[in-house]
Design a protein around this nucleic acid. Sequence first.
DNA 1: GGGGTAGTACTACGTCCTGTAGAGAGGTGA
DNA 2: TCACCTCTCTACAGGACGTAGTACTACCCC
Lengths: 118, 118
Amino acid sequence: MKGLGELERTIMDILWAENAPLTAREVGRLIEDRDLAPTTVMTVLDRLSRKGFLSRTRDGRAWRYQPAASRDAYIAELMLEALDLTGDRDAALTRFAQAVSGSEAEILRKALTELEEQ
Amino acid sequence: MKGLGELERTIMDILWAENAPLTAREVGRLIEDRDLAPTTVMTVLDRLSRKGFLSRTRDGRAWRYQPAASRDAYIAELMLEALDLTGDRDAALTRFAQAVSGSEAEILRKALTELEEQ
DNA sequence: GGGGTAGTACTACGTCCTGTAGAGAGGTGA
DNA sequence: TCACCTCTCTACAGGACGTAGTACTACCCC
């Protein structure tokens, strides 16, 4: 899958935060701090949809972009991808379990328990 | 931390697989398939140690390289880093727990249980 | 002791990704 | 018709990586 760049992630964050599909102009307006040219935003949106992170639909002449997957799914996939890099998945998983904070361990336990019950 | 390139990862894999610190020449000999110039291997080893993935000690004129951290630790850190990208860690963790395979869920459960007992 | 060998440091170059944006085309409303 | 919006195409700079040459030093064998 591959990670995203700084601006790409900023834009994905904006789109994940919104519920509705946005146009390039709308996304641009939501990037406060940076003064980007409209074409910059359009280029990045285009690249993101080309890479499969966004889907887009026509709205008049403009495109409306929305995330192809939820942020959670993306993060989970990144984590699985990291896990795939090792030969010894069990060891890495054990290590990971030890590395998360206590409250997060609790979350994991709960999710695993629910999983088991189904 | 940042991910590694293809050749960088190949070399890290070799060093993770060995127990002893290796010289550039030895690493080069262990990369079977590719016919790399010795300096290529040296350059990559140098970059990896500069990035903190390897530590090196003198052995005569040569350097001996060894991983600065275990592969498991590296993988776990990558996973945590992915997790840091989200605003909602709990949701991502839950999603992750649902995404791992059954046997891996078992491993996670066991690790978390042992963690709890300590 | 001179040449091959091994090792180092430094430098370089092509490629790909990403951030950034301009140019030009084609609608659209005042 | 003119200003304007949005699109697509093209471009360029900087950084990471794969790859390797060059130049210099130290060592070993004949």
